[in-house]
Amino acid sequence: TLFEALYDYEARTEDDLSFHKGEKFQILNSSEGDWWEVRSLTTGETGYIPSPYLAPV
């Protein structure tokens, strides 16, 4: 399942991933609570992002 960003987000740590509203992601790991490890389909980068900022496509 692909997810889309509902809002912009600016990374706060080196493990976070900055992204823009509308960017699409592949979920790599969603078992860590509200922070999911994802791969951006736009940039190819991986990192953690807050799951409340995402919605299924």
Results as ranks from 00 to 15, higher is better:
residue 1 T to K: 12
residue 1 T to G: 12
residue 2 L to E: 06
residue 2 L to M: 09
residue 2 L to Q: 06
residue 3 F to D: 00
residue 3 F to I: 03
residue 3 F to Q: 02
residue 3 F to H: 05
residue 4 E to R: 07
residue 4 E to N: 03
residue 4 E to Q: 10
residue 5 A to V: 03
residue 5 A to T: 04
residue 5 A to K: 00
residue 5 A to M: 03
residue 5 A to H: 00
residue 6 L to N: 04
residue 6 L to C: 07
residue 6 L to V: 08
residue 7 Y to E: 09
residue 7 Y to N: 07
residue 8 D to Q: 04
residue 9 Y to R: 06
residue 9 Y to K: 03
residue 9 Y to T: 01
residue 9 Y to D: 01
residue 10 E to Y: 10
residue 10 E to G: 06
residue 10 E to I: 14
residue 10 E to H: 11
residue 10 E to C: 13
residue 11 A to S: 13
residue 11 A to E: 02
residue 11 A to D: 02
residue 12 R to Q: 14
residue 12 R to G: 09
residue 13 T to W: 14
residue 13 T to S: 13
residue 13 T to Y: 15
residue 14 E to F: 10
residue 14 E to Y: 10
residue 14 E to D: 13
residue 14 E to V: 11
residue 15 D to I: 12
residue 15 D to M: 14
residue 15 D to H: 15
residue 16 D to G: 15
residue 16 D to W: 11
residue 16 D to N: 11
residue 16 D to A: 15
residue 17 L to G: 01
residue 17 L to P: 03
residue 18 S to N: 06
residue 19 F to C: 08
residue 19 F to Q: 01
residue 19 F to P: 00
residue 19 F to L: 04
residue 19 F to N: 00
residue 19 F to E: 00
residue 19 F to D: 00
residue 19 F to Y: 06
residue 20 H to I: 11
residue 21 K to T: 07
residue 21 K to H: 05
residue 22 G to A: 03
residue 22 G to Y: 05
residue 22 G to M: 02
residue 22 G to Q: 02
residue 23 E to Y: 05
residue 23 E to T: 07
residue 23 E to C: 06
residue 23 E to D: 15
residue 23 E to V: 03
residue 24 K to Y: 12
residue 24 K to Q: 13
residue 24 K to R: 14
residue 25 F to S: 00
residue 25 F to L: 04
residue 26 Q to F: 13
residue 27 I to S: 02
residue 27 I to Y: 08
residue 27 I to T: 03
residue 27 I to C: 05
residue 28 L to M: 07
residue 28 L to K: 02
residue 29 N to L: 05
residue 29 N to W: 07
residue 30 S to H: 09
residue 30 S to E: 08
residue 30 S to V: 12
residue 30 S to K: 13
residue 30 S to C: 13
residue 30 S to A: 13
residue 31 S to C: 12
residue 32 E to N: 15
residue 33 G to I: 10
residue 34 D to V: 12
residue 34 D to R: 08
residue 34 D to P: 09
residue 35 W to L: 11
residue 35 W to Y: 11
residue 35 W to D: 04
residue 36 W to E: 01
residue 36 W to N: 01
residue 37 E to M: 14
residue 37 E to K: 13
residue 37 E to Y: 15
residue 37 E to D: 02
residue 37 E to H: 14
residue 38 V to K: 00
residue 39 R to V: 09
residue 40 S to L: 06
residue 40 S to I: 06
residue 41 L to S: 03
residue 42 T to A: 12
residue 42 T to L: 14
residue 42 T to F: 10
residue 43 T to I: 01
residue 43 T to E: 01
residue 43 T to Q: 01
residue 43 T to Y: 02
residue 44 G to M: 07
residue 45 E to C: 13
residue 46 T to R: 11
residue 46 T to E: 09
residue 46 T to I: 13
residue 46 T to V: 14
residue 47 G to P: 00
residue 47 G to E: 00
residue 47 G to D: 00
residue 47 G to H: 06
residue 47 G to Y: 06
residue 48 Y to K: 13
residue 48 Y to R: 14
residue 48 Y to Q: 06
residue 48 Y to L: 11
residue 49 I to H: 01
residue 49 I to D: 00
residue 49 I to Y: 00
residue 49 I to S: 02
residue 50 P to F: 15
residue 50 P to N: 09
residue 53 Y to F: 11
residue 55 A to D: 05
residue 55 A to Y: 10
residue 56 P to R: 05
residue 56 P to N: 05
residue 57 V to N: 05
residue 57 V to R: 01
residue 57 V to I: 13
residue 57 V to P: 05
residue 57 V to D: 06
residue 57 V to W: 08
